[in-house]
């Protein structure tokens, strides 16, 4: 869930830079989506399944595949952000849900849906309407199912990590192009929509994940917030202390979860992240002449992850 924090920063920063680079037809310059369906189509990665079925199915089990719906709780938090946050703040410009614009939702969607930067305010309003409707007790279960389906159709999929956000240092490595996919090598790619395969220098590096899994407040926003602080913890409490493993090594390779990459919610992964030892000792303590029978319980825990547990 918290894999997705600062992706849009790079996109937002890229906009003025791209304006002066002829021939750089990037995602940000494409025509903006006017509906959830259009945005889903713009970032449709269902074609990847044809050749990468196992990976696609793994991803489909992940929270990335439902990044703005989550377990339902994420959608409800979007609604709360509007009703309690935006509508409660004097200078937000939001007095009612219909006032919400893309920029208002980027406090969440910078990471939960970075491609939102390529959508119009109509999409922002559509998402808000559905999120509020989902939380309404009067909404039928059939309608809730439809809302879940619709909100889950836009997510963090192949094209986000392997294209849109595959490059962090665009002045050094170039700007991601719509006809490219990024992985571990250069070459051609058997997909007419994405015929070029390029090596991303950061595909196995933690900074790829760090784009979203946060350093702290997102100061580029008019009203900053922080949801994930995990990458900050990784940098300053793990790497700075000599830790050497990457996000991908633990969450994808060692866990054998690949693109499913669960974390806290996976019982076995959570269990493996923390060593847990308990010792007990029964004895009778003597406080002057008073005999006090008691048990000493000693609990020793060591977090084996490359970041604080939990974060946020």
């Amino acid at each position: 869930m918290k894999f997705l924090r600062s992706i849009a920063v790079t996109a937002v920063l890229a906009l003025p830079l791209l304006a002066g680079v002829p021939g750089m037809a990037t995602a940000a310059e494409e025509k903006k989506a006017k509906s959830i369906d259009e945005l889903a189509k713009m970032y449709d990665s269902s074609g990847c399944k044809q050749c990468h079925e196992g990976i696609y199915n793994d991803w489909n089990q992940s929270l990335h595949a439902r990044s703005i719906f989550g377990t339902g709780r994420t959608a409800l938090t979007v609604a709360t952000t509007v009703k309690v946050g935006l509508m409660g703040w004097q200078y937000s410009g939001v007095k009612k849900p219909e006032d919400v614009k893309v920029k208002h939702l980027m406090v969440c969607f910078k990471c939960h849906l970075p491609q939102m930067a390529e959508a119009t305010d109509d999409v922002a309003r559509e998402i808000v309407k559905l999120s509020i409707r989902y939380g309404d007790k009067a909404t039928s279960s059939e309608e809730k199912d439809k809302i879940e389906q619709k909100l889950s159709s836009i997510n963090i999929n192949c094209l986000i990590c392997h294209q849109r956000n595959a490059i962090v240092h665009k002045w050094v490595d170039g700007f991601p192009q719509k006809n490219e996919v990024y992985g571990s090598k250069d070459g051609t790619h058997a997909d007419s929509n994405h015929a070029v395969m390029k090596k991303s220098p950061i595909m196995s590096e933690s900074i790829l994940c760090g784009q979203c899994h946060g350093l702290g407040p997102n100061f580029e926003l008019e009203n900053p917030s922080q949801c994930g602080t995990l990458y900050g913890s990784y940098l300053w409490a793990y790497r700075a202390e000599g830790g050497q493993e990457s996000c991908q090594e633990c969450h994808m390779k060692k866990s054998k979860m690949g693109h499913n990459m669960q974390s806290y919610s996976d019982i076995n992964f959570g269990k493996s992240a923390v060593d847990f030892q308990v010792e007990t000792l029964g004895y009778i303590w003597r406080d002057k002449s008073k005999m006090i029978p008691q048990t000493l319980v000693k609990v020793d825990m060591t977090n084996r992850a490359g970041h604080s547990i939990p974060d946020g």
Binding site: L86, P224, S225, A237, T295, D300, M301, T302, N303, D311
Partner: peptide, 27 residues
């Protein structure tokens, strides 16, 4: 709410690779 978090008052999470000990005395 995630929309209002912008700092850390203190971090009482489990730090990476550092032991945390707890003791309880139960009569």
């Amino acid at each position: 709410g995630p929309y209002e978090k912008s700092g850390i008052i203190r971090d009482n999470g489990l730090p990476p690779h550092k032991p945390v000990h707890e003791q309880f005395e139960i009569p």
